[in-house]
Amino acid sequence: MNTSPLIAAENLTVQFNGIPVLSDVSFAVQKGDFFAIIGPNGGGKTVLLKTLLGFISPSSGSVRYDGTDLSARTVREMEIGYVPQSIHFDNRFPITAFEVVLMGRLRERTLGKRYRIDDRKIAQEVLDEVNINEETARKSFSSLSGGQRQRVLIARALASKPQILFLDEPTASVDPSSNEAINALFSKLNKAGKTLVLVTHDIGAISRYISKVGCLNRKLFFHDDSTVTPDMVKKAYGCDIDLVSHGVPHRVLDNSKHARHD
């Protein structure tokens, strides 16, 4: 039996112009995990995701999937889904929401092949899952609200039928009611055996569903369960933060330590 973790980051260091953005980040994610990485803005969360996806090459360290280095072809062909932050898109780009979701089918319909009826069916299904109706799907992506765009990008990732799903602040601009529905959707995917890696600066409502958590601020403070200790947060944010007042349910907190902290 294969004992390698599904995703293993070993001593990852990423530098931009000699300035370290990530330093010595190591962690392991097992199949079926729901791994949340929290941390302040500018702490390197997006960079870490992009390094795990192979968009950014680390200056040292390695990323392995099932024991194989990220650069290998087999890894590139793994069923990896990705939800980027929706704020980075051009505000006038001529593409409909439905066309965005169809992009999730590109792994099946590679260069030069046309989308099939099946692809459109899948796109429709995943749009239903994120609660975007047909009329909205026909609209231009840029005309949608922030929350709708975010849900379209989630639908796009789901359309690729991923086994591993990377999420970059997936509920950042989503209204609270959709937020809960999306978190429930992630939980459902996770229970169906998918592995999820999520970065967020607001651990809030998602905390009930996660199985592992780490705090990232250039360095990753991580231990192998879903407990955030005040100590981890203090190291990552560089100051004390009262987690409870920020809406984190008690379950994620290490209550004994937190009590002492109080």
Binding site: L53, F55, P84, F93, E99, M103, L106, L111, R156
Partner: peptide, 26 residues
């Protein structure tokens, strides 16, 4: 011939490449 790929790549090259590595030739 490459219409859907050009549309996708122009919109989000990273995602296109994640889905289909060949799309970087675009």
């Amino acid at each position: 011939v490459l219409y859907k790929d050009i549309l996708a790549y122009s919109f989000d090259p990273e995602f296109s490449e994640l889905m289909d590595r060949k799309s970087k030739v675009l």
